[in-house]
């Protein structure tokens, strides 16, 4: 009966993942490996960026809006924020579908999301990346790594660490069923600062991590060390988010850009 319960929980989490995220690894890999009839529009310089803004991301940039005359770096930063806000919204819905999460203390739910969403976001972002670039605008565009590197500082420092993480993370060859449990494990983490009912969350975390371990053994029988490797990725993601939060604070201080109120809430007093 216990094994049946574990399989049910794993299935519920995977279904919640497929239902709540507009992009997943299977979809992204289909596009990135050229198996779609509509290949993504490649953004590799200022000209192709402008073309993409007029078509793919017109809604996000607001072609008639305040950002129209701003420099490319600021417009790209704004687009990144829009995507982040959408993913945080999706992650919140996903978290609410994880059995037990909604019955946690509401303050603890806020804390788990505050500290977990960016780690989860960067773990999932890897699915949309290859060594040459990143899918954007729901897979209708592909922005090259070289173009992102060529932006002026500090904006050029934004994505390269995520590419470096993604290349190592993608080498583990996780699929969406693995990622669903991994993202749930990131969110249900008992050592976030300021949690009230730690033991309640630790019970949830233990069962999710245990299911993740069993699932990896069954889904990747050739890689016996996949589970410990993934545990190390949790630590790497925490470091990646710490550095990202510092960079965003620097941009906020030195650049004339606004930060979305939801992201401000998350970054404020984070680390």
């Amino acid at each position: 009966p216990q094994l049946a319960d574990q399989k049910t929980l794993a299935r519920q989490i995977y279904e919640a993942y497929l239902k709540n995220f507009s992009m997943n690894k299977a979809k992204a890999r289909t596009i990135l490996t050229g198996k779609t009839s509509n290949p993504p529009f490649v953004i590799h310089d200022m000209e192709t960026l402008q073309l993409a803004e007029q078509t793919l991301v017109a809604k996000m940039v607001g072609s008639a809006g305040a950002l129209k005359d701003r420099e490319a770096e600021v417009r790209i930063f704004h687009c990144c924020q829009c995507t982040s806000v959408e993913t945080v919204t999706e992650l919140t819905e996903f978290a609410k579908s994880v059995p037990g999460f909604s019955s946690l203390d509401l303050n603890d739910q806020v804390t788990l999301l505050k500290y977990g969403v960016y780690e989860a976001l960067f773990a999932m972002l890897a699915s949309s990346m290859n060594k040459d670039g990143l899918l954007v605008a729901y897979g209708s565009g592909f922005i090259t790594r070289e173009f992102l590197k060529s932006l002026r500082r500090p904006f050029s420092d934004m994505m390269e660490p995520k590419f470096q993480f993604a290349m190592k993370f993608n080498a583990l060859e996780l699929d969406d069923s693995d990622l669903a449990l991994f993202v749930a494990a990131i969110i249900c983490c008992g050592d976030r600062p300021g949690l009230v009912n730690v033991s309640h969350i630790e019970v949830m975390q233990e069962s999710i991590v245990h299911i993740l371990q069993l699932h990896l053994l069954a889904n990747h029988p050739d890689d016996a060390f996949l589970f410990p490797k993934l545990l190390q990725k949790l630590a790497d993601l925490r470091q990646l988010v710490t550095e990202h939060a510092q960079l965003v604070q620097e941009i906020k201080k030195t650049e004339d850009t606004s930060l979305h109120p939801l992201l401000q809430e998350i970054y404020r007093d984070m680390y």
Binding site: E86, T89, L106, N107, T111, L262, E265
Partner: peptide
């Protein structure tokens, strides 16, 4: 904590309210 995270709090309590982009 809820006071400092009003949007997160709202997202947790109500899935239908959109977040302005």
């Amino acid at each position: 904590l809820k006071e400092k995270h009003k949007i997160l709090h709202r997202l947790l309590q109500n899935s239908t309210s959109p977040v302005e982009l």
